[in-house]
Design a protein around this nucleic acid. Structure first.
Length: 542
RNA sequence: GCGCCCGUAGCUCAACUGGAUAGAGCAAUUGCCUUCUAAGCAAUAGGUUACAGGUUCGAGUCCUGUCGGGCGUACCA
């Protein structure tokens, strides 16, 4: 519809002698009195045409040719806005679209044919996923779902590194606990992992091997067991959160395939990498930074930037049209280097896109709660889901813009009542389901409903709200900001509950009941679709 | 010091690429359950969008500066 309005305006503009084509933008006014769609074109043209906006608006409107089946009124208002009002016929046609679209209503094809990789979570397997990882996991998965709704072919990937210092310390921590269980003294490593889960892993090693591992030469068998068990744990947590990874990418494979060496060599050939003080440096000053960056330490160990560059090159080699990374604000500093790196290597940096989210402050007992995996001072996602469930967990991580700090108040999330906004959406859906069950008992509705009977303001508002869904999904996908979907669903649920209070279904005559049933069905469908994007269930009763 | 993000109602946060009278939820006040789920609806109150300038028809949104908060700024990941 917005395209249609842009088109008729464009046609009317032919009367003017314009140097360049103006960008015609149609938006939905905040105030309902201002109509359903609005254009600011007259104000945009005021300067080039050297005329006042209202006069221009009048000329544009005079030259407008439109289908009265779609648009019922056009008005000039304020400083020169041109406001359009949709006709009832159009709204009812669109309502039918919702019903026939069904579970596909809201899908678009803006990214059809594109292969997209979304990389997220990517926590090294040193311990269970915590609330801190939760935002990353849920955000990544939901961005992936949004991209799927715009037609993209999406894969979810988890990147990890089991070769670094962290993992070695993890292995040593397990070994220390293993020795402890056998009554042997073994110094607990400095900065080791203190969590209870380390003891569990040691215990399971003891069950299998007895004391056979006392003769192990290094921490390797301990580390491997730890990695295996922790990954199993992480996968189970993700599954519980309705997240399924398509692939796990081990950083180590980049070494085995020689990709790390290859990357360095290419950068050297480009004169962007050089040796100094026993280290290999990346000439980031060539990209506007004040200092160069170390790629390989004098110890021979690469810093994380080098594999990051090689990894992104690898992703693009795999033929993705778009690679989305999800990470916390603390990692933002590496991003420009990675882009510089892959650009130097001849890849298109526009194909890499980053979703950065700000930190989560966990509020427990009304106070901020500082977490550390290493010190075993954390709340795991499993603990959280035990308390509030997966739906609430997902919702809370998604309800805020990624770009803002998220305060996760456990007490509020636990509250099943009015303080918890998730239930508002689910409740609306459950109510509709309940009504539909009863409608089936009391009426024998058949044939097509006469939707023209829908004319109550609450009915009209509900229809108009539903119609915003496809655009909302498109915006959320483009901006990688799932919270827009939540804002929309709140509006929709609110429009439905107003309708629910104003307009009855049961007890009305059959024709009206039929029309309203169709409207309720459509609302339920859109609620389901929206909740589906968020990975949250839409229960039929509560 | 430098870089990135943020500052909106008492609290937590919206406001789509600059648009008309800045919106929700919670908290507060007031009505509404013999009728489809009151986990609800309707209404009232609550604001100099941190501050000071600038850009323009028009700024919460863009630019400059100040103040305040978060995160970076390592041959740590």
């Amino acid at each position: 519809m917005k395209e249609y309005i842009a088109e008729i305006i464009s046609n009317s503009l032919k009367q003017f002698d314009l140097q360049e084509k103006p960008d015609i933008r149609i938006e939905a006014p905040n105030q309902p009195e201002h109509g359903d769609a609005s254009s600011n074109i007259a104000m945009m043209l005021a300067k080039p045409l050297r005329n006042n906006p209202r006069a221009i608006a009048q000329q544009v409107v005079d030259g407008l040719e439109y289908d009265e089946k779609k648009i019922s009124a056009v008005e000039i208002a304020g400083p020169g806005f041109i406001n359009f009002r949709y006709s009832d016929d159009y709204l009812l046609d669109e309502l039918n679209e919702v019903l026939t679209g069904g579970e596909s209503f809201g899908k678009t094809d803006t990214n059809t044919g594109k292969k997209v990789l979304v990389e997220f979570v990517s926590a090294n397997p040193t311990g269970p996923l915590t609330v801190g990882h939760g935002r990353n996991a849920v955000l990544g998965d939901t961005v992936a779902r949004l991209l799927e709704w715009t037609g993209a072919d999406v894969e979810r990937e988890y990147y990890f590194n089991d070769a670094g210092r962290q993992m070695r310390v993890l292995g040593e921590s397990v070994r220390a606990r293993y020795y402890e269980l056998l009554g042997k003294d073994e110094k607990f490593p400095e900065g080791g992992y203190e969590g209870e889960y380390i003891k569990d892993i040691a215990r399971s090693l003891l069950d299998v091997f007895g004391d056979g591992l006392l003769s192990a030469a290094d921490e390797k068998p301990f580390k491997e067991k730890a990695e295996e068990e922790i990954f199993a744990d992480i996968s189970a947590t993700l599954k519980r959160m309705n997240i399924k990874m398509d692939s796990f990418f081990n950083e180590h494979s980049l070494y085995e395939d020689g990709k790390i060496e290859e990357t360095i060599q290419k950068l050297r050939d480009l004169d962007l990498a050089y040796d100094e003080d026993g280290a290999v440096w990346f000439k980031t000053t060539a990209f506007g930074k004040d200092k160069d960056t170390v790629l390989v330490k004098s110890s021979g160990e690469p810093t994380y930037r080098l594999p990051d560059i090689a990894y992104h090159a690898n992703k693009l080699d795999r033929g993705y049209d778009l690679c989305v990374d999800v990470f916390g604000a603390d990692h933002i500093a590496t991003y420009p280097d990675v882009l510089s790196g892959i650009k130097s290597l001849g890849y298109d940096p526009d194909k890499v896109d980053v979703v950065v989210y700000q930190f989560v402050t966990l509020v427990k007992d009304g106070k901020p709660f500082k977490m550390s995996t290493r010190k075993a001072n954390f709340v795991t996602l499993d603990d959280l889901m035990d308390e509030v469930g997966a739906d609430v967990t997902r919702f809370f991580f998604l309800m805020r813009s990624p770009n803002t700090h998220l305060e996760f108040d456990i007490a509020q999330a636990k509250e099943a009542g009015e303080k918890n906004p998730v239930f508002y959406l689910q409740y609306a859906h459950a109510r509709i389901s309940s009504i539909l069950r009863k409608v089936n008992d009391e009426y024998e509705l058949s044939g097509k409903a006469n939707l023209k009977l829908l004319e109550h303001p609450s009915e009209i508002t509900l229809i108009k709200t539903m119609l915003k869904f496809p655009e909302t999904v498109g915006n959320a996908a483009r901006l990688r900001e799932p919270h827009h979907v939540i804002t929309f669903l709140n509006e929709l649920a609110s429009a439905f509950t107003s309708f629910y209070h104003d307009c009855r279904i049961l007890g009305e005559d059959e024709e009206l009941a039929h029309a309203r049933t169709e409207l309720a069905k459509a609302a339920a469908q859109v609620l389901r679709n929206g909740l589906g994007i968020l990975g949250i269930s839409a229960p039929d009763q509560m």
